[in-house]
Design a protein around this nucleic acid. Structure first.
Length: 592
RNA sequence: GCCCCAAUAGUCUAGUGGCCUAGGAUAGUGCCCUGUCACGGCAUUGACGCGAGUCCGAAUCUCGCUUGGGGCGCCA
């Protein structure tokens, strides 16, 4: 009977079996030798005793072997209740070494007291890191989620289609950085790798393929962040003749099914909605984490009337002042929020672009601080601050100020989430939220020019379309983002299906007709040949899977990720290319 | 483009100017062991990223470089 290392149970005792696996731990007792034989299904103990013991002496860690032997029940005192296969073991009759292994550069064990080898080493030997149980579980979980999603779309009658990966570069209209591939057959010209299948899926709608989805690999050449990769996966879909309501409902049903099938959890739908404007004003960004409250309040008026000179000076320079109150049991022993934590938070605030951070705590309905002089300076506006922030006893209030509203809100929203997660009194484990009624355009703070807030294909809402010429910043888009625990897991919109309106929106971001024609002419042309009303969304699969699993690092859910420099320690890509080949094939020359 | 942090055996880590001939754990190697399961026992190999400087004296302080990590800008 051929089996795997996770399958054998008590009632298999007596059977002859053939096992393949990796030698994880080898315990040599002199006259007898035990091996924990591992594969992705589990671990089974193999015993070598008698004549075969000396064959096993040559085995080393991570050797791949085949063992034929007899399954036997363990003696009562030898049972290992922490292993699923712990009732039995395999008594080896024959041993074949299938693949020898060098001594591994790090041990294939789970985290040791919270320590893992450095990330670069893990990535260089990714195939070894992937032998860890946690990584196996993560990769299998990703597969489970992907399968569940596919099953959902197939069940809804969607076609799984493949859009091209070598596409027209649209950097000129998008401003975002694409990865470029030189063309050998058209020297001097380049393909781009898609940042999204957006244009192609819209053209699918024009062609009448009215329900499309794809597990799409997309590429973005922006600078690295902890949760960014050069290439990542989106669940991309688009439908024709439907409105926002239908698409949101579809995503809700999808998410509901995925939660049920992968976590056996029931989640409540429909999800809450919030206007973009409200999200920014109350939470400081467009993806509020609603596992906790802690709204941001504007206390510019109070600060202006206080005697706190630092804030007053910011206000004189047309700045504003924002505050958040955190429920924290501040004065109590063992509270996660204590004086030392607050001092470190001030440093965090500086890293987020603020010049500093003022913090107070509430005791007996009064503001207190270190040193006392700070709360003294707020004495005359104490009531106002307490009522605006809704702070009660034990709460900590953080106050930030900056001359740039954007910088201030961005920093306060990040502080809000950092402290909120630290306090960890979540009302719900999974807080879903639709953010909608986004503006179509946003003003670039420095130059004052208009940019598309999302992509330039979002259809304006009927009630704001008339501002298009007079006051384009007031135009809202039929766009919706799905936020889970402060992470944007999906974003989509109803698209423009009218070529004239599409031209108009593109002109609105300062593009000339010639520029539009040059980069997006083929798309406008497509919209001119009978384009249905259509819309869709894309779900960021890597982040979605990690969030579902309750983990932070998306790299732990990607088979072969890149490091912070977007190098791959595994294959050392990117690499330089021979100058002669560049010249001959692409007519390119690299200047050093 | 900018800011911050770090770098000690294969791996993880201790280390705050002399107690360092650099400690521990684990891996490796050799020997012993018939019930272990991250087996155990004994022995043993093995490290201060590179370069300059300060000092009587540097793993420790300063500067530069290199490498890695985190963040800002950026992510239509």
């Amino acid at each position: 009977m051929e089996t795997n290392c996770g399958a054998l149970r008590e009632n298999d005792a007596g059977k002859e079996t053939s096992l393949n696996g990796w030698c994880r731990y080898i315990r040599d007792h002199g006259g007898k030798l035990f091996i924990d034989l591992a594969d992705r299904y589990g671990i089974t103990q193999v015993v070598f005793e008698g004549a075969i013991k000396k064959d096993a002496d040559q085995l080393g860690r991570e050797y791949v072997i085949n063992v034929i032997g007899k399954v036997r029940k363990r003696d009562k005192e030898a049972i290992n209740p922490s292993m699923p296969t712990g009732m039995v073991e395999v008594e080896a009759k024959s041993l074949k070494i299938i693949g020898k292994s060098k001594v591994p550069p790090f041990e294939i064990v789970e985290e040791k007291e919270g320590f893992l080898p450095s990330e670069d080493l893990r990535l260089k030997y990714r195939y070894l890191d992937l032998r860890r149980r946690k990584m196996i579980a993560n990769i299998e979980f990703r597969d489970k989620v992907t399968k569940s999603i596919r099953k959902f779309f197939w069940g809804e009658g969607f076609l799984e289609l493949e859009t091209p990966n070598l596409v027209r570069d649209t950097h000129d209209v998008s401003g975002s950085r694409t990865l470029l591939i030189p063309s050998r057959t058209n020297k001097g010209e380049f393909f781009a790798l898609p940042q999204s299948p957006q244009i192609y899926k819209q053209l699918c709608m024009v062609s009448g393929l009215d329900k499309y989805f794809q597990v799409a690999r997309v590429f973005r050449d922006e600078d690295p962040r902890e949760d960014r990769q050069l290439e990542f996966t989106q669940i991309d879909f688009e439908v024709s003749f439907k409105d926002e309501k239908y698409i949101q409902d579809l995503i809700e049903r999808l998410v509901k099914q995925v939660f049920k099938e992968t976590l056996t959890q029931e989640i409540k739908t429909p999800f809450e909605h919030m206007d973009y404007k409200v999200a920014i004003a109350e939470y400081g960004n467009d993806k509020p984490d609603l596992r906790f409250g802690y709204k941001i309040s504007d206390i510019t008026d109070e600060a202006a009337n206080s005697n706190y000179n630092i804030l007053k000076r910011v206000i004189e320079n047309k700045g504003s002042v924002k505050a958040i109150a955190f429920q924290s049991d501040f004065s109590k022993e063992g509270s996660p929020i204590d004086k030392n934590y607050m001092l470190s938070l001030v440093e965090t605030a500086k890293n987020l672009g603020l010049k500093g951070l003022t913090w107070l705590y509430v005791k007996n309905s009064k503001l207190n601080s270190f040193p006392d002089s700070i709360s003294e300076a707020f004495k005359n506006v104490e009531k106002g601050i307490l009522s605006k922030t809704k702070a009660g006893d034990g709460d900590v209030i953080i106050i930030g100020a900056d001359t740039s509203e954007n910088v201030l809100l961005a920093a306060m929203s990040k502080l809000r989430r950092i402290v909120g997660i630290k306090i960890d009194k979540f009302k719900t484990r999974h807080a879903f939220l639709w953010v909608d009624r986004f503006p179509l355009y946003e003003k670039e703070e420095v130059t004052g020019s208009l940019q598309p807030a999302h992509n330039p294909f979002v259809a304006p809402t009927e009630d704001t379309l008339h501002f298009m010429d007079s006051d384009p910043e007031k135009v809202l888009g039929k766009r919706y983002d799905l936020v889970l625990n402060g992470i944007e897991i999906a974003g989509g919109s109803i698209r423009i299906n009218n070529p004239e309106l599409q031209m108009k929106v593109l002109r609105g971001i300062g593009l000339s007709d010639e520029e539009i024609e040059n980069s997006l002419g083929f798309m406008i042309e497509g919209l001119s040949h009978g384009a249905p009303i259509h819309g869709g969304a894309a779900i960021g699969l890597d982040r979605f899977v990690a969030t579902l699993a309750g983990q932070d690092d998306i790299k732990d859910f990607i088979l072969f990720p890149r490091n912070r420099k977007f190098d791959s320690p595994l294959d050392n890509s990117p690499s330089s290319i021979d100058q002669t080949r560049l010249k001959n094939d692409y007519n390119l020359r690299i200047e050093k």
